[in-house]
Design a protein around this nucleic acid. Structure first.
Lengths: 282, 282
DNA sequence: TCATCG
């Protein structure tokens, strides 16, 4: 398979201190450059001192520890070298549209170099995967049951397909482990047990379907939108009744409204219980 | 494959007037109820008059036209029947966490019935698919190349894997059509051609990686966040310089800042050109 | 989050 190019093309990948493309920094970059004239591709691989801590999650992913980059050059010192190596090449990577390209742009911007991507093309290999291998109900039926979904989008036919898929999953994943997003192995999570599957398929970080509310690290329900993002719902809306009424009248799901009412009620109750206790103690 | 249940379990699916769980309405619901005592599952299938128009996109998906439901009962009239059929069962569906369950809750809420999901469990079959079949680089290498990705998250090993995957994709998808999100067939979009793949993997609706900006139906770049969501960036920030400065100083990617500056500059230029023209005409 | 749900 020979690539047909009218311009050089750089495949590249970044390892970083974390996932935030603005706040986090590069600790390793690797580039393989394909030339339009067809000559042998050229490689560049660099370790970089990020100048900020490497998050524990990131270390667990790529294994690069602070001591591994402590004596390496900074991005500032390597910027020109990377810039020249890439030249005016097009770019390619895995999930590079959302991660590698914007993070590289940030690094260049911080050292005063404007890495112009409007004049380059880019191929995100992950996007090809996502688009060409959809995960619709139809695709699921084919994947798990090797069946064509003939009457798709008739409600009863879809329910039947869903049940087939579900049974196929119980079968296929018997004894199969799950690797979670942090790479932690969960032993055989797919069991013929509703409680287990309820927990597995309901992301407890998000507590409502539209993801307007979520649980923070302490398990408190906080806003995931608007001016109070990250603030606890119960306390905040108890204080700001105007915002409370605004939410109840606005186009939020009844699930959100139900939860909001409940949280304020519970906060109020907790407050009264405390007051009473204080009164008793005096 | 026999389901082990400690409570009845309703698999269900909804066809609707559109995708918005708050604004849209159910036109068809199908439910298959499994009983904890193991007796034969029971089915319910209903056509419902939604009382609002069915969007064209929805009709193209499920084929249910206004005339098909014009003489059917409304949700109000069927609510009790659906409520009783489901009883206190647990729920299951395909993408039901994000679609079917919240939409059903909305319908019940509108007729004054609070369908309590905090006391039920739910299984989203799509979530099992997503979690057990991830689309990481490692998974891609296995899928396209039948290879194990041994040295995952070493940057150079990841670049090599990305190239392998990419070549595997060029191979696998030669002559394979793509069905886009509206079900429109695109003929063999995966070609050994950077320009073609650039267009295929870069969603032209979103113009920056963090999706803070996007193109509207006219192709104008508009805000996708904050108080000016949907408004044209250039004009809006030319008028509101304070917001402009706020963006440039806030934690947005350099890509966003670059675009914002460019859009304001262009708007200003267009304005001056118009003024000059008007001057000439007088 | 992304895609997927209609």
């Amino acid at each position: 398979m020979k690539l047909i190019l009218d311009r050089d093309l750089c495949f590249f990948d970044i390892e970083a201190t974390g996932l935030n493309v603005v706040r986090d920094r590069i600790v390793q970059i690797a580039i393989i450059k394909y030339f339009k004239d067809g000559r042998e591709p050229q490689e560049l691989s660099l370790m970089i001192n990020p100048g900020i801590p490497i998050s524990l999650e990131a270390i667990l992913v790529h294994g690069i520890q602070p001591k591994d980059v402590a004596n390496k050059p900074t991005f500032q010192q390597l910027a020109q070298k990377i810039w020249d190596f890439i030249g005016n090449a097009d770019l390619a990577g895995y999930n590079s549209n959302r991660f590698d390209i914007p993070m590289l742009m940030e690094e260049f911007a911080r050292v005063g170099m404007e890495f112009d991507v409007t004049k380059r093309r880019s191929i995100d290999v992950q996007r090809i995967f996502y688009k060409m291998e959809p995960r619709t109900l139809k695709a699921a039926l084919k994947f798990y049951c090797e069946k064509e979904h003939e009457d798709a989008h008739d409600a009863m036919a879809d329910v039947r397909a869903t049940i087939d898929v579900f049974k196929g999953q119980l079968d296929k994943y018997e004894g199969v482990d799950y690797l979670d997003e942090d790479g932690v192995r969960v032993e055989a999570p797919i069991k013929n047990d509703v409680q287990v599957l309820h927990e597995f398929t309901n992301d407890n970080r998000f507590v409502d379907a539209t993801q307007k509310l979520r649980a923070d690290v302490n398990g408190d329900i906080v806003f995931n939108f608007g001016k109070y993002v990250g603030k606890p719902v119960g306390e905040t809306l108890y204080e700001d009744r105007q915002y409370y009424n605004w939410i109840l009248n606005k186009e939020f799901t009844s699930q959100v409204k139900q939860m909001v009412k409940k949280l304020v009620r519970e906060y109020e109750k907790g407050l009264k219980a405390k007051e009473k206790e204080n009164g008793n103690n005096e």
